[in-house]
Design a protein around this nucleic acid. Structure first.
Lengths: 361, 361
DNA sequence: TTTATTCGTTAAACCGGTTTACAAGTTAAG
DNA sequence: CTTAACTTGTAAACCGGTTTAACGAATAAA
């Protein structure tokens, strides 16, 4: 009953050949005469032979597996990314192994070790938290690592980000153009690249319009729904309300939306909100969230390509790749150029002199 | 520059011992005198030795990795499950490798092969589609497989489902108790176990209340948002509208919510809606979705435990485990026992004679 | 006819561990 | 004083492939 699976030796015996011949034939690293090949094929079929990938990995020195490390997977941004990565790598004959770091440094370091342990040939790395230089120093030792979405300063690996500055600038321009003057920016920890860049875009748009943009309009903490709720409460308790909020992530925006509604503030009638990322949630909430689209799937696809390239050709470097970040207009921004009291559904927006910068939803 | 990582042999040399001694010491399969152990520890530290897990797997015959196969990961139900599985298995020293089947039979079969290829020691399997017996026949050959959420008839592996019948019955009871009389059930393909069971619960509640439940109230297709939208359109075009809808998945419910709103049907004022699963989306939509909670994370945790047990003790079987399915009351159901025209926000529901069956949100 | 080349194939080393079987050296029991 | 039973450690086989170096035979070139 303990029928263990046939080995390459069994196949060789049955075909009357040697292990080596079979191995090389099966890997197409040699061309054998028609007849010999036929014998091998027959033996393989008869025995139901399947090569043992572990043994193969040991002698080849590779695992044909890559890892994707994300802070969490139950966040649609990351799960959409994971889906794209899985598809991309499986098309190229690789397996995907998933690591969830929960932003714990130790876990992240542990996943890096996967490379040493030859569990994976390379790693797609997404981190969400400010680095204390520990990760930076560690990660630099690895060639086959590609950073996605967020930078780790001081690293030299290939990276794929979105055009944060342009995306944030366009979103802010849009708010300004639609008549908003007092805009708050609610964002993550100030040491993150994405936070800095989005803030830069935010400031840029203000400068262009010669609008003030004091630090009191900026709220830093992290990219969570929880923070969105907290900051909404805080803002509501202050004397002067903003007329618009640019949140640096959909999760923040959604948390704020909830809390604003709970407190009777109508969006977009009383306050406009723009998010960032365009996760699938943005279309689901009420009002549908106007947001800056950053295609998680594209991030994943390009990242996977980069990584696989880096594994195949260690000498080639792509550096930083940027994908588009384009405004998607939905229902959470009101056009305030109309009379302040005259509220219309946002679908009835009067045509802009300049149309919104990028694609509509 | 080509400094390859040290092997166990290097460690042995440096410690003046044999490979075997080092290996056994490191695996704690032998107790060595203080001093000898110290020498090994020193050598390991000095060399920065890390064991090669591929080599280890080859000789041990296991991969210390399990696989999770889901139809898609960008569905929060599955990603929440994945998150829990990852956490559980990593606590027990296992890796998780992710397979996304997109409900393609070939992909599913391919993932099963992972077991033959000793890529994984076992598989957590979630499938969403009716089986044509192909998968059933194949899957039976594998011992280390646990089915989650949905059955594949004819298989004998351990399985973890939720109490579909009870969950559906409670949801339907609740609708009936709150005064709904014409309830439609919108659900997936009729061959799926979860569909059959939820339908059974739906019928049960009708019987108890001596209410008719004709087949024209049942709409089968699949568990997607898309189907939700389609069926909403279809229902709206028919002469008599239902006063409530019990959707067998949150995704269906959310699709319907959208389409109903688009057509000016107010939920819950004009029509009540209940979903199933309680994904994180349920709290996000407007109105917040009343739904039957099936804890994806718990499904994942228990499934992972079962699988790891099955790998460790192949002789033990747990059979089918059921987790709770309990109604979570939110805002998408109206209490119609009040005057038909007197509409109040659902938070102002008059206290029920019998309170809603389970936990509130 | 002799020398090269190519073709088809294989023995053996190798990847880096784990595990079995057994050998000295010590200690305990009879 | 033997014999049995631990201790401490090792040599060698093994896991199941891939790859290198080389060999005999056949074909081509000189």
């Amino acid at each position: 009953m303990k029928k263990k699976s046939p080995t390459i030796q069994d196949v060789a015996d049955r075909a009357g050949l040697s292990k080596a011949a079979v191995s090389r034939y099966l890997n197409k690293s040699i061309r054998l005469p028609e007849e010999t090949g036929q014998k091998i094929d027959d033996a393989v079929r008869a025995l139901g032979y399947r090569r043992n990938s572990i043994a193969r990995r040991l002698s080849k020195g590779g695992s044909e597996t890559i890892g994707l490390v994300v802070p969490e997977i139950s966040n649609t941004f990351f799960s959409e990314m994971a889906e794209a990565v899985e598809q991309t790598v499986s098309e190229r004959g690789y397996n995907l192994i998933l690591g969830i770091s929960r932003n714990h440094p130790d876990k992240e370091l542990g996943f890096l070790r996967w490379i040493d342990d030859s569990i994976v040939d390379g790693l797609l790395f997404v981190t969400n938290r400010p680095d204390n230089r520990r990760l930076q120093l560690d990660i630099r030792r690895y060639r086959a690592v590609v950073l996605l979405d967020e930078d780790i300063p001081g690293t030299t690996q290939d990276k794929v980000f979105c055009h944060n500055i342009e995306g944030a600038r366009d979103a802010t321009r849009y708010l300004i153009r639609t008549g908003h003057r007092r805009i708050f920016h609610v964002t993550g920890p100030s040491s993150l690249m994405s936070v800095k860049e989005r803030l830069e875009g935010f400031r840029l748009a203000h400068q262009e319009a010669a609008l003030p943009c004091p630090d009191t309009h900026i709220f830093h903490h992290d990219y969570t729904q929880q923070f969105g709720r907290e900051v909404a409460r805080k803002i509501l308790s202050s004397p002067i309300l903003p007329d618009a909020i640019f949140a640096a992530s959909d999760y923040i925006a959604i948390g704020m939306l909830e809390e604003l509604r709970r407190n009777g503030v109508r969006v977009p009638e009383d306050m406009s909100v723009i998010g960032f990322d365009d996760t699938s949630l943005a279309e689901l909430v009420t009002p549908k969230l106007t947001t800056v689209r950053q295609d998680a799937a594209e991030l994943g696809r390009i990242g996977a390509d980069r990584l696989l390239d880096a594994i195949a050709h260690p000498e080639v470097r792509h550096g930083v790749t940027r994908i588009a970040a384009s405004l998607v207009v939905r229902d959470s921004v009101r056009d305030r150029r109309l009379s302040t009291r005259d509220i219309r559904p946002p679908t009835a927006l009067s045509p802009s002199p300049e149309p919104p910068p990028k694609n509509q939803s």
